[in-house]
């Protein structure tokens, strides 16, 4: 359902971020994208959600050819992808409930659905008791769970988690990864960007390794190896 075909991305004149990247992700797969800082992981994500345009090549997401979408079509694409970031990126002026509800509101879903789904998802991430707290009143782990709830509330086909545990302690990290695995089991494709070796080695799923803008390894049930 996701496929990168001969994708190149050059910033400016000669800063090569990606070179000839090819991969395909099937529905319901769990893929870890690993690599050093600056290897090109984030660029791949940015290209997938249309934040950047490739210099060359095609990016297919379901029925869309992402590299050809116009700005107003991008918002429709993004509603089918749930995104979780290392720095949470919650809306600071909205409380947890409203942050989660926002993802439904942008689609113009009726209030009845919001009233029904938001408590369900908050319950799933274990944050029912924090629904009316604002982001600055939540701990890192709690913020990330709100972010995951927001990413999942509209049942996207794909969850992109860009270093979701980068700012978390080991216990919270384990809980967040457990949550993401559960989401995958429920039928959502997951792309996990990380450089946490322990996580990648523990979950025994497909690993795509990126280095200097190239894919150097793509293995089913892979390990975190950067040589």
């Amino acid at each position: 359902m996701i496929s990168f075909q001969n994708v190149n991305k050059v910033y400016g004149d000669h800063l090569v971020a990606l070179e000839n990247v090819n991969f395909t992700i099937k529905p319901n797969e769990f893929v870890s994208l690993v690599g050093r800082n600056g290897a090109g992981k984030s660029t791949i994500i940015k290209l997938l959600i249309g934040e950047e345009k490739p210099t060359k090549g095609r990016i297919i997401f379901g029925p869309y050819e992402v590299n050809k979408l116009k700005p107003h079509e991008l918002s429709i694409l993004r509603r089918q992808i749930g995104i979780v970031f290392q720095d949470f990126r919650l809306l600071p002026t909205k409380n947890a409930y409203e942050n989660v509800a926002f993802a439904l509101e942008v689609e113009g879903r009726p209030q009845s659905e919001i009233d029904q789904f938001v408590p369900q998802v908050l319950d799933m991430v274990g944050l029912s008791h924090r629904a009316y707290n604002f982001p600055h009143e939540l701990s890192g782990g709690e913020k990330q769970r709100v972010a995951i709830a927001r990413a999942m509330i509209h049942r996207p086909a794909v969850l992109v988690a860009d270093e979701p545990t980068g700012n978390l302690d080991p216990i919270n990290t384990a809980e967040i990864i457990k949550l993401i695995l559960k989401i995958n089991e429920l039928g959502t494709t997951v792309i996990l960007v990380t450089h946490n070796k322990d996580i990648v080695n523990a979950i025994h799923r497909r690993v795509i390794s990126v280095d200097s803008g190239r894919i150097i390894r793509d293995e089913e049930k892979g390990k975190y190896i950067l040589a």
Partner: peptide
């Protein structure tokens, strides 16, 4: 915040 809204898929 505006950037986050766009990433969540909010229209202009």
């Amino acid at each position: 915040e505006i950037g986050v809204m766009r990433l969540v898929g909010a229209g202009n």
